[in-house]
Simulated scan of single mutants.
Amino acid sequence: MSEKSVTSAAGQGPPTAEAAGRRNGMVLLIVLTLQTMLILDVSVVNIALPDLKVALDFTPTGLSWVLSSYLLTFGGLLLLGGRAGDVLGHRRGLLIGVTIFTAASLLGGLSDSAAMLLAARALQGVGAAFAAPTVLALIATHFTDEKARAKALGMYAAVSGSGAAIGLIGGGLLTDWLSWRWVLFINVPIGLALLITAPMFIRETERKPAGFDLGGALT
């Protein structure tokens, strides 16, 4: 069988540079959207705290845990999340993290008690810990050209630096225009969009079979 026939049978030949560029553009859009969502959730609830206090009858001490519960699980499980990406594959790690984060955001928006909201915020942190380490890993694996990689990393740094400010502005607007619940609900459509598009454009990375130090992570 001729080379032309083989190509035809396969359906299409190797991707062109233009097609590869479009694909990498979508990969960058996906990972930057993910990074923005994770970073802004550190600050997006700040403006809504007074409304949360009244709506769910928070004590002053309990109210501080709306922020701390997210940061504690996010930072505490970050190394475990990075390990999971290496072992399971970074695309799979992204999907697991975004699934947990999106479900937790929906749960938080539906909360009718302080305990339920704090549990949802902690679960958001777990999802973020699994998803966040995949961002840099996917940039490294998809952008092999040094200039393209440097540009992608620059955009990643810009998004990371501006995420907190975006969260404060967005949190204020959502609270004023809708309600405090929307500082959490806003993550749901973003998360669903990521879950749909990520498998379409992001290729899975090589898996590195190994164990997990669950005890160390929890400690």
Results as ranks from 00 to 15, higher is better:
residue 148 A to E: 15
residue 123 L to C: 09
residue 96 I to P: 03
residue 49 L to I: 11
residue 125 G to I: 04
residue 177 W to G: 02
residue 155 M to R: 12
residue 154 G to L: 02
residue 168 L to K: 08
residue 173 L to P: 11
residue 193 A to F: 14
residue 192 L to C: 12
residue 109 G to P: 08
residue 124 Q to V: 05
residue 30 I to H: 01
residue 211 G to D: 03
residue 160 S to R: 04
residue 214 L to M: 04
residue 104 A to G: 07
residue 70 Y to S: 09
residue 217 A to H: 05
residue 156 Y to N: 15
residue 191 G to K: 01
residue 180 W to G: 06
residue 159 V to A: 10
residue 130 F to R: 01
residue 95 L to I: 11
residue 47 I to E: 00
residue 126 V to H: 12
residue 46 N to D: 11
residue 191 G to E: 04
residue 106 L to P: 09
residue 86 D to C: 08
residue 182 W to C: 05
residue 195 L to H: 04
residue 135 V to W: 03
residue 101 F to K: 06
residue 101 F to S: 08
residue 11 G to D: 10
residue 195 L to A: 11
residue 38 L to M: 07
residue 85 G to T: 01
residue 7 T to C: 04
residue 18 E to P: 03
residue 58 F to W: 05
residue 98 V to L: 03
residue 133 P to M: 09
residue 122 A to T: 07
residue 40 L to D: 08
residue 88 L to F: 14
residue 99 T to P: 09
residue 33 T to M: 11
residue 35 Q to L: 15
residue 34 L to F: 04
residue 62 G to E: 03
residue 123 L to I: 11
residue 154 G to V: 10
residue 195 L to D: 05
residue 22 R to C: 11
residue 21 G to V: 12
residue 2 S to D: 14
residue 81 G to T: 05
residue 14 P to H: 04
residue 186 I to W: 06
residue 120 A to C: 03
residue 96 I to Y: 14
residue 70 Y to F: 15
residue 164 A to G: 08
residue 112 D to L: 13
residue 162 S to V: 15
residue 215 G to N: 09
residue 219 T to S: 12
residue 146 E to S: 15
residue 80 L to K: 07
residue 80 L to Y: 02
residue 189 P to M: 01
residue 104 A to M: 06
residue 209 P to D: 03
residue 80 L to G: 10
residue 218 L to M: 13
residue 66 V to C: 06
residue 187 N to T: 13
residue 126 V to P: 13
